[in-house]
Design a protein around this nucleic acid. Sequence first.
DNA 1: GTGAAAGCGCTAACAC
DNA 2: GTGTTAGCGCTTTCAC
Lengths: 345, 345
Amino acid sequence: MSTGGRRRRVTIADVARHAGVSTTAVSKVLRNAYGVSAAMRERVKAAIEELGYRPHAAARAMRGRTYTIGVLLPELRNPFFPDILDGLYAQLSGTDYQVIIVTGGPDAKAENRAIDALVDRQVDGILMVAPRVARARLEEVACGLPTVVLGPHEKSALYDAVLDDDEVGAELVVRHLIGLGHRRIAHIGQREGTPRRAAAMLHTIRARTYERVMREHGLDDEIAIATTSYSEEGGYRGARELLGRSPRPTAIFAGADLAAFGALTALHEAGLAVPGEVSLAGYDNTRLAALSTISLTSVDQDGDVMGRTAGRLLLERIEGRTSSVRFSITPTLVPRRSTAPPPQT
Amino acid sequence: MSTGGRRRRVTIADVARHAGVSTTAVSKVLRNAYGVSAAMRERVKAAIEELGYRPHAAARAMRGRTYTIGVLLPELRNPFFPDILDGLYAQLSGTDYQVIIVTGGPDAKAENRAIDALVDRQVDGILMVAPRVARARLEEVACGLPTVVLGPHEKSALYDAVLDDDEVGAELVVRHLIGLGHRRIAHIGQREGTPRRAAAMLHTIRARTYERVMREHGLDDEIAIATTSYSEEGGYRGARELLGRSPRPTAIFAGADLAAFGALTALHEAGLAVPGEVSLAGYDNTRLAALSTISLTSVDQDGDVMGRTAGRLLLERIEGRTSSVRFSITPTLVPRRSTAPPPQT
DNA sequence: GTGAAAGCGCTAACAC
DNA sequence: GTGTTAGCGCTTTCAC
């Protein structure tokens, strides 16, 4: 019942001895570095194979690269994130880089700890998805290692940004609803994290755009926003709040599909038919939105391309690029059965 | 536009100098080790605070612990996994341990690479959720570091197991459907990974139990299994296959909620009402199953408790336990509107 | 109770 | 093209 003697790790020295070369030679083969003859490369590779050698990541981290890309995710429940990660994996496949994921948790403090964990583990590059920590923090991280930020709209000379044109996306939704004849259109948003960053956060942009388009159509008085969070729970609470108003909205634009799912439950509990009595739209076009029994009108932002791009930008930075890049995706509307003209009054 | 001079990391030596003590003393304070006076502890802690020191994980990994728990997840889309992780986080909160997640990908080979990545990064403990690699591989890992395996039913003296009593769960579903009057009940399962492990895999147990209960009720001839995968796509394909048979089943038991969601799409495309014409049940009782427009009958296995337990067992092993523990959860049925008596013929 | 020093496995100068 | 060697930041004997 003992865990048994953990046999000593095979090290680079063992491989060198076995192949009859120096440790330097082995190290160079490992890194595909310049300065080893083809013959030696073969011998070393054979020795690695025979001994089942695998580089010790921590030892590498002490001197060089860890061949690790760290990804910070706010949480694991939003079905849009796997789309992004699939793109990242696709971009990184074929390289020696390995992705490790940490989750940020509920507040900026927890998120900061998660970022620390990545930095402490010497990742070669970091992708922060929809981070809520202060901008100064992002720059501090970016100052120390290749960084890509996905989501927020801030410009920075220190890190690359991959983002969705949330203004276009939100406008598509609101115009779609107005085009169907709705006037009492409400919005479910997310509470901003750090107040000073609010303007750059994607949820703020979606909310502000909603307000702007409403005003442009003379619907100033119909503006109604419930500020909760982009989660099922948040969507549920937000919808409850909005449905409690009188007169109640005929359409709800949730800032994220996940929140729309929660809103769906609230609508059902209130005995309101979708889209018969209330239309509902989301954002992200997650796979579940396409599910027949949900059939949620949503905004498609290509997560796969975003993930791929983030991966490419990280690799470029690791290879030495220091100038800053900003990559923006233009979203499209995917109308489904959850939106329809408002009921005749 | 430069990334700027990455300022040198604060090291243990800096802290020692600042506090006027040795590096040994600092190290001891960091690890809450025995052999430092209270006064010295205070001085060191103050110095750490002032300098903003954070331990370098890789350097620690070279000699001692990394304070990292590695989690292997098959993929990121199954909404049941976040439940497990929430439990794990809860158990680990308050400790110095940080969780990093890697995903196994589509096949055993990719999963092996992901496990390697965790081992190479010297995690202090590893949690493998529903691994599909060979059993020998699990034991090999467990031989080198504290290991908990969540899902498979194999017994091992080398690692701890946290599992759901899938036999009970599957039986609940099938009996529920039979109790409603169904006879033509079909099942959507997952292709086993390594053939030799099949018997221990949770998806095999769910399928075998389905068969057993069907036989016990004299429904041998009605047994119909589509073996795809526990994914939306797999559920879709499985349901299409099953609905193509004649006569078609009046109920489908999908081995996972995620697969049931895919089956829902197939049912809808085929123009079949749920539960009017075909009843549908899942497994995992994910939050989305409770969604009003889905309202999926499912089996609840307490993911939070499973995650908590996995965390506790890992901590115990890290603290030195070498005997092997097996923790089993008993699931319960959550009937919802997706199951009803079969249509009158 | 405290500190000096060795060394974990690797990479990168630098010498040959 | 190849090998020698000095560390990276920490933990851990082992003296004091």
